[in-house]
Design a protein around this nucleic acid. Structure first.
Lengths: 202, 202, 202, 202
DNA sequence: TCTTAACCGAGACGGTACGTCGGGTCTTCAC
DNA sequence: GTGAAGACCCGACGTACCGTCTCGGTTAAGA
């Protein structure tokens, strides 16, 4: 993957590809990202090293695909967020979900690994933005636009900024462990953000 | 360092220590964090590898000290933030300064390196929190308390939350390159945050 | 080849066969025998690897055929040696020719390669003996028998021994570079051998 | 070795050196020269690969040293050949000994390996000539000179030529397996050679 | 004339070994 | 007596080839 993967169009072995991605996920969980080696992935997957080097340019790219293969959206199937009409309640639900995901030990190690890759590889980061983040962000913005139409959010609010205010604090507390990452914290962030962009204010 | 460094109290060679930290900084800038090696540091510093292993437990710890040695506060000398009486203006000044620092190419590579270490090493992260972040955060909170006393900020505002709202968006945009990191962005974040915790609101 | 090659009797592509043998000779000359690889032969010959593996059992066998294809006798056409009636002069001529062949740089590398194969592969050596050496040796012995009839050589001389005395010193000097390989040396070897088996002596 | 080995003068580990040479000899006997790998030598010797690469430039050089370490003369202790006064009998004894050595399966594989190296590496061949062959040849020539003084050998005989006639046939039969390698063959070669250079003849 | 099966170029695959880099430990020697 | 120098064992790197195995695409027998 990394670039598009076209099933059936090449002689690439789908069996090997899945074995590699699976072994990569297993090893990240077992030994951590820093001690992950191509050699161990190949061995665990029952695959020659060359088969990895043939299809991925770097260890980071393998990790990237291994993790994305888990969360990849079915193409064309748009992400949908709850829209009960109550913006604050809906946002609390999704931010709490994010907090819960970050708190799940099964996700922690791989996502840290992925994040490390993105920090040091701008190209990979751009690909991640395009393939994963953008669709999700668009869904979130759509919910915010719905709130704008309902008069629950300033009409002139910069939606990228709103998303930053909502998610960056959660992301940073998780990444750097600078404070407790709880549902209460999620709620407080949402409340503050909604307040900041309330039509009544200002 | 990492643990306390007591100048003069041991037989440790200060000359070697400085050479190692300097070589580390130079190499991070030259070859990047990923390709930084203890051997290269020792060779560049004109030092035996053992001299590094004797005093630091890991490569991360060396990098940590190398970067901290640059920004270390003189002990006992508290950080002071501007307090003109205008909270929003004062905050814009300090957040803009943060943005400027992140935008400086000379700081970018080493800070990314340090951040990567903190992400994967909770112990180092705690030390960083204690030695670097806490004093600065305390200074920022002091400015916020001053604003509370002046009636420019809600008296019951959770100051940790306020700091998260102020700094996390900047940090995340820098780390993941998810959007432009400009003075305008800094201003917008400050305005939104101040609005969220304005005494008039809610 | 190695075993018989029957042109026309199979679907084997003569074009591919020639391309493989030619590429093998070219590569032995270019990179030497030690660095010769099947992949390189296939690539140079514009041939799939399988086509080589289909028809030859080992790299040695390909090299063997590649070199033999150069020197192969037309079947049925016996080798003939000069027979002027003067044994010593005739032998000097053929041993000098052998020395000249060994001294030709174009022959040196391939013959060393072939010799290495024969040293380590008894089966190939037997085949070489049968296909190449035996006919030539028989021609040489015929000349010696002629000399016996002419009373220039002991009637009871062991002809295999005579040939060993004549050729082994030249072969060894060439292979191990233990001394100068000149026409004078060839002459000296012939003179000593003829003397050793002179009817007058003993 | 290969170049001089100066015990005690460097930090080189004699224990590792001996383990490597021993493992090399064992593996040549077990799997043959063609399948001998540096990796296997290192593993068997309980040594890092780098320790081999640090001290030897090639696999051939290791093999060379491994075999030479067996036959190396004590420096200063000259080789002595039998001198009973009967040249032919004495020569038969030493050539028979050579035949016996070649026939010993324990020597066959390693000496073939060494010979292959010498064929393809002129530098190594020169070193072998200087370190091993020359002293032995000199001893043989001394015996021949003794025979010259005793009137059993032509005074003007080229001793290098005599040695070639004596040893090359044995060497070639062994290397290429072109005929039986027996004590009778050794005797016949000696008899012919002695005859060729008999003072009475010519 | 039309199958049809062997042969072909191509190259992916699971592997072994290469020669190099660097990790962290341990020893030696010069200052 | 410290500390630079660097040898040591080890693990992993990324590459080259090994010999096997499909893949489609000719191509030449024989039906």
């Amino acid at each position: 993957m990394v670039t598009e993967h076209r099933p059936g169009s090449s002689r690439r072995s789908e069996r090997s590809r899945q074995a590699i991605l699976g072994a990569t996920r297993a090893l990240i969980a077992e030994v951590g990202y820093a001690k992950l080696s191509i050699e161990a992935i190949a061995s665990r997957a029952g695959v020659g090293k060359q088969t990895i080097y043939r299809w991925w340019p770097s260890k980071g790219a393998v990790v990237f695909d291994a993790i994305l293969a888990l969360s990849e959206q079915s193409p064309g199937e748009p992400v949908a967020l709850p829209d009960t009409g109550d913006l604050e309640a809906d946002l609390k639900q999704v931010v709490r979900a994010t907090v819960a995901e970050f708190s799940d030990p099964a996700f922690d190690a791989p996502i840290r690994a992925l994040t490390t890759e993105l920090v040091h590889d701008a190209e990979l980061a751009a690909l991640y933005e395009k393939r994963v983040a953008a669709p999700v962000d668009e869904a979130k913005k759509e919910r915010l636009r719905s709130a704008q139409r309902a008069g629950q959010l300033r009409a002139d609010a910069d939606l990228d900024l709103v998303l930053d205010l909502l998610y960056a604090p959660v992301f940073r507390r998780w990444l750097l462990r600078t404070g407790p990452l709880t549902a209460e914290f999620a709620d407080a962030v949402v409340e503050a953000t909604v307040r900041a962009f309330s039509p009544a204010a200002g």
